[in-house]
């Protein structure tokens, strides 16, 4: 780790093909800045990306990375971190990747509390496939596949996380660059699974959940008397369907990450060129 790392070191030489004005630019910038601020460099960082507009982030960032199968980014990140506790792991995906096809993994990744950061770029729409309802779309949001709206409530990812025993739950807004970076940074520094849902507006297919909408409606928890260490406070914020919030909603300061719970602390990439010492004991057990 070198101390003179700048966030631009995390930029690859590929120009993003996101639509001009896409929230994902800001989301990615905040991620890169948070990584640089926390003393990481591209060679000790592993970014896992899913599929969708958000999934392209692995291409636009420079680090060790895997751009995987739709919905399975969290299990990949889990495997990387368990094999390499010395590596900083950041997983990124969209609302479809995380809360639809990958929803099952989300619940269990939260429970496992592996020490990594999960950034969900939530635009409440499927952008890459040109505008279909996502699991976080509003009930009356009209799209090509839901002409009268989905007529089902959107997934509440924070509630899902809290119910699954999350140790860090946060919400940020890609356009509020400083706050977004600050919140991602807290998630990186958290000892355990740092979950940040990021409002990352789609300027092409979502004319409801726009920059203006979020700017006008977001309440910053920092400016309220919200106590993020209080699960009850967190529950109230999460179940408040009248307001949009940003900030750290919940953080368990006593969080014990998976690797400490399970004593997984070795760099598994290093192995001897023959059977490990004491392997013959395994044969004797069958006597």
């Amino acid at each position: 780790m070198s101390s003179d790392i700048r966030f631009t070191d995390f930029k690859s030489d590929k120009q993003p093909t996101w639509c001009p004005g896409c929230g994902d630019f800001g989301t990615m910038n905040g991620m890169m800045k948070a990584l640089a601020e926390t003393g990481n460099d591209p060679d000790n960082t592993f970014v896992v990306a899913g599929i969708g507009c958000s999934g392209k982030i692995g291409t636009y960032m420079h680090s060790y990375a895997l751009h995987g199968v739709h919905g399975r980014a969290l299990p990949v990140g889990t495997g990387v971190k368990m094999a390499r506790p010395d590596i900083e792991v950041m997983v990124a995906g969209g609302d479809g990747d995380g809360y639809s096809i990958g929803a099952g993994h989300f619940v269990h990744a939260v429970r496992r509390n592996v020490d990594m950061t999960y950034v969900v770029m939530d635009n409440r729409i499927y952008g890459l496939t040109k505008g279909q309802a996502s699991p976080t779309s509003r009930e009356d949001f009209e799209t090509s596949t839901t002409p009268d709206g989905p007529k089902q409530p959107p997934v509440n990812p924070h509630a899902l996380a809290l119910a699954s025993g999350a140790t860090f739950i946060a919400q940020s807004f890609s356009s509020d660059a400083l706050r977004h970076q600050e919140i991602i940074q807290k998630a990186v520094e958290h000892d355990g699974f740092g979950f940040v849902n990021v409002y990352s507006p789609c300027v092409t297919f979502n004319d409801v959940d726009t920059y203006d909408y979020f700017r006008d409606s977001l309440v910053d928890l920092k400016e309220t008397d919200h106590d993020p260490t209080d699960r009850g406070d967190a529950k109230d914020v999460i179940l408040d369907s009248e307001k949009e919030h940003q900030g750290v909603i919940y953080q368990n300061e006593e969080s014990v990450p998976y690797h400490e719970q399970h004593g997984v602390d070795e760099d598994m990439s290093v192995i001897p060129d023959g059977a490990p010492e004491g392997a013959t004991d395994l044969v004797r057990e069958f006597y």
């Binding site: 990949v76 990140g77 889990t78 495997g79 990387v80 368990m82 590596i87 598994m268």
Partner: peptide, 12 residues
Amino acid sequence: NMALGAARGGAR
């Protein structure tokens, strides 16, 4: 996918 992640990390 976990096994894949660990392999990308360099583990057998």
